[in-house]
Amino acid sequence: MEYDLPQNFQRLHEAEELLRGKSLDIIRDNDLKAHLAIVELAMDLADILRQFPTDDEDLKVVQLLGMRTFNAFASSLKLALSGYMQNSALVMRDILETVFLLDLFRGEPSLIREWRFADKQQIRKKFSPVKVREALDKRYGHTAKRRAELYQLFSELAAHPTMKSALMLRPEIGGDAVIGPFVEKGALMVQLSEIGRLAVQVGEILGSFIPGWWGPASACRTSFIQAKSNWLSRFYPGSRTSKK
């Protein structure tokens, strides 16, 4: 006997689809397609990297992490367009943590094997999110702790039940919190900006793991470079490279 979903679930799904249409209208009306374009190409690079034939177990780890970002981008974007901003931001924190780890491996490939075989104590000591951020700050000579601040922001607004997290349940600043999905122009624009910024970083780092001589990646790599340049020119005038 076929089981029908409860009517409230069906109504909720219909509302989510209506909100998705509203979100896409906001994107069209405000010329925000560059965000979607860079996310799509970062996901394409993750898929291309997945297809690269290799027996290198370390590179296979990178491929798996790239696949993780693919699924996370798809989930975060779907949630944002359907009105679940807080949940979308929670998934973005996962992307942020993953791209930091990938960046660590990019600079020190020998760490991949070490990470693969690390026990819980070794993970806490060297590969926990805070240790990875500290290692990247040291590598790039950064003292402002921007990685930590951004990670903390995602944590407070989305990952943890804090008083600040209630802000993402309010369509208007100072307004009442609402239950269920909602779409508000300003919130959506901020959400897409963050997704786009993460996509620039993810695509750049994943692309660095794909050998330059491998033909199947060339078209995607070129498209990403062009889209990244367009994205930076539009949203970060004067900048030609993403901020590490």
Rank of each mutant, 00 (worst) to 15 (best):
D56F: 07
L153K: 02
R106M: 04
Q121W: 14
G141E: 00
Q152F: 01
P211S: 06
E184I: 05
H35D: 09
L79P: 12
S223A: 02
R139P: 00
M85F: 10
E134I: 04
A159P: 01
S218L: 05
K125A: 04
S165D: 01
S193H: 10
H160W: 00
K243Y: 11
L198Q: 09
N8F: 15
R68F: 15
F182H: 14
P211R: 05
G141V: 03
V61L: 15
A227G: 02
L198M: 10
G215L: 03
E204S: 04
W115T: 10
N87E: 14
G196E: 05
R106A: 06
P237E: 06
C220T: 14
L188F: 14
K145F: 03
R93F: 01
A159Q: 04
R133A: 04
A34I: 04
G215V: 12
R28M: 11
T98C: 10
I38Y: 01
I48H: 15
L32C: 01
E57Y: 13
R28T: 07
A15K: 15
G207M: 02
G175N: 07
G107Q: 11
K138C: 09
P171Q: 01
D56Q: 07
V183T: 15
V61W: 11
L101H: 03
L65P: 08
F117E: 07
P129Y: 13
Y140S: 05
M189T: 09
E17D: 15
L90C: 10
P109E: 11
I26T: 05
E204A: 05
M67H: 08
N71C: 07
E204H: 03
D29K: 12
S88T: 05
S242V: 05
G238F: 06
A135I: 04
P216N: 09
S229E: 13
L81I: 00
K120G: 12
E194Y: 13
K126P: 01
A177V: 01
L32A: 09
D4T: 13
R68H: 14
K145M: 08
E14G: 07
R50E: 14
L102N: 09
E2H: 15
D56C: 10
